[in-house]
Every structure is written in C-alpha cells, then in structure tokens.
C-alpha cells in the first residue's frame, strides 16, 4: 500500500491531473452544467489538438534537456509555406509536404546551432522565433493568400466525425501522434537515450550515446509537430494568417511544466504535457462559460503554472519521505 502511494506521488503529472479534475468540477458548477455538455466538449476537443500537439513536441524536447521558443513561429510558417505554394497552383500533397519540410529544416537549424556551438537553446530558438515569424510575414506579402475552396482535404484533417460529431479528425491525428511519441519515449532505445541525455549529460556521453544527434532529432520532432499543428489550425479556419501562434511557445512550455516536466531535463511525461495543454484549453473555455472577464485567462494560467510546480515539488518530497526499502 505504502509502495503504491509512493509510486503515485512520484508521478510528475499527478498535480496536473488533480487540477484538471478540480477545475472541471468548479466550471461545471459555475456554468450551470453547460461545461460538460456535448456541445461544449465538442468545442474544447476541436481546438485541443492544436495546442496539445505543440505541447507534446515541447515536452519531448524539454525531457531531452533543451528548449524551443520558436514553435509559435513555426506554427505560422509551415501553413504559410503551404498556402503560398497552394496559391501558386501546387496540388495539396506537395504543398503540405513542403510545409512540413520547412518545419523539419527549422528544427534541424535550431538543433545543429545549439549542439555545434554549445549555446543555450533558449538563445538559438529565441533568435529563430523572430527569424521564422519574419519569413512568414514576408512570404505572405503582408496579405494572407486567398485559398480556393477545396484547396485542402478537410475530411482528412478537420471534418467532424464520431457519435454526434463529437470529434474533429484533427483529434484522431492528435491521439495517434501522442500515442506514437509516448511509445517512442517509453518503449524504445531512442527514448532511453532522450531521458539519459536530459537526465545527466555526462553519463549519457560516457556510455557512448550520440547525445548530439539525439538532441537534434528531438528539435526536429518538436518543430515538425508545431508545423503540423499550425497546418491543422489553418485548415480549420480556412485562411492562413501570418500572426497565428503568437505566444504559443510560452503556453506550450507552461503546459509541459504544469504536466510535471522539469526545466532541467530528464523528468516528465508526454501524458503530462497533454494534461497541461488540456488544462489551458479548459481554463480558457471555462472562464468564458462562467461569465468571468476573459482577460483573467493569463492570470489564471500564470498562477496555475507556478502553483503546479510548487505542488509537484511538495508531492515529490512527500513521496521521498515515505520509507520503502530499495535495498538492504
């Protein structure tokens, strides 16, 4: 029994799950039962994949011990590259592939600059935040390209599916990708290397892990997911705006942190990042339903981020103080 308690208290995503349950109860009561209605859940689940996919990538990268502030800009750049080529008459598939290649390239540049010159990824990706945003605006020519109807296969990415049209296709994409990344991190040797690289770099290096390549790969996955998420948003809205995703990088970091990912690397789970992203969506939506001024959103998000970290640290201390023999 004690052993189980200890194992659960040590789960880094525990605080996030607790907050999610608590807020669900509060919002359900405050909104007079509207919060958990099918129509409202449909709204939350429709928007969730876009933030959550970015959070999944950022969480993976943070577990690897690095940071990406450029995800918000990649979120805009990828669909803009796709839209500009679509407008120029390219078919969907090559245009979409080009957009994703741009995202991968940004990740590659972020990663190579960071490991090659041994500079903090905070700096590299802060630079990239501006560079990628600027390119987005420049290639859009200042005006969002006009996309012909049927330019992208909505049925494959954003159409409603499921009983009562509960989900969008984007949600299924998100679930599939989240499961894949979770398995990659927990069940493969690559995942072991990611955790070792972020957990204690000298040990990973002395055990012969190609830590530089592992980091670059994580940067690329992170960027790719951000680009894909941005593409989903543009397909949902039907128009690419050069300003989408501004501030998203910090929301994604907040999601990862609320979900128990440590800034120092090595600790965290993909599930935690998803819980964090869900919390952000739930707060955004729940405040509106509770008829609270929407400008309180950032205040709540900020307070929650700090509080979640404090709660997590406290839970972990509690877990440590539960004495279960590891040896004799």
């Amino acid at each position: 029994m004690k052993r189980f308690l200890k194992i659960y208290l040590e789960k880094p995503e525990l605080a996030g799950v607790a907050f999610l349950l608590l807020l669900t109860v509060v919002f359900q009561a405050r909104s007079g039962g509207v919060f958990l209605s099918a129509a409202n859940l449909q709204g939350i689940l429709g928007l969730l994949p876009e933030v959550a996919l970015v959070a999944v990538g950022v969480t993976l990268l943070m577990i690897c011990g690095e940071f990406d502030l450029s995800v918000g800009s990649v979120f805009a750049l990828t669909p803009m590259a796709m839209a500009v080529t679509l407008e120029a008459g390219w078919p969907f598939l090559p245009a979409f592939a080009l957009g994703l290649c741009v995202a991968l390239l940004v990740g590659l540049v972020n990663g190579v600059l960071t490991v090659r010159f041994a500079i903090p990824s905070f700096i590299t990706t802060l630079g990239m935040l501006f560079v990628a945003r600027s390119i987005t605006v420049v290639i859009s020519g200042g005006f969002p390209p006009l996309l012909p109807n049927g330019a992208f296969p909505k049925w494959l990415f954003v159409a409603y599916v499921g009983p009562g049209d509960m989900f969008r296709m984007s949600f299924l994409w998100f679930v599939a990708i989240a499961v894949l990344v979770t398995l990659l991190l927990s069940r493969t040797n690559f995942g072991n290397w990611v955790r070792a690289t972020g957990g204690f770099l000298p040990a990973a290096e002395s055990m012969g892990i190609p830590t530089k390549r592992v980091k670059v790969a994580c940067f690329m996955i992170c960027s790719l997911l951000a680009g894909f998420a941005g593409s989903l948003q543009v397909m949902r809205l039907g128009a690419p705006l050069p300003s989408i995703g501004e501030g998203l990088e910090l929301q994604a970091v907040a999601a990862a942190v609320i979900g128990g990912t440590a800034l120092t690397g090595g600790i965290g789970t993909i599930f935690g990042g998803i819980i964090g992203a869900t919390l952000i969506r739930v707060i955004d939506n729940g405040l509106v339903l509770s008829q609270v001024d929407a400008n309180w959103f950032k205040m709540v998000l900020g307070a929650l981020t700090v509080f979640a970290v404090i709660l997590n640290a406290w839970l972990r201390r509690k877990a440590k103080s539960i004495k279960v023999e590891t040896g004799k």
């Binding site: 072991n192 955790r195 070792a196 957990g199 000298p202 040990a203 055990m207 892990i209």
Partner: peptide, 23 residues
C-alpha cells in the same frame, strides 16, 4: 570505465541504467 559520479543517470531506473546505449 566506472567514474566517480557520471556513469549513472539518477532520474532513471536501475534496469534502464544497466543498459544505456546497449539496450
């Protein structure tokens, strides 16, 4: 080689540490 500190990752389990890089 066994180093004074840096041959184990503290945030990982014993089983995972045993096989780092040779899973």
């Amino acid at each position: 080689t066994i180093y004074q500190y840096n041959s184990m990752v503290p945030t990982m389990s014993i089983a995972r540490n045993m096989f780092i890089g040779r899973e």
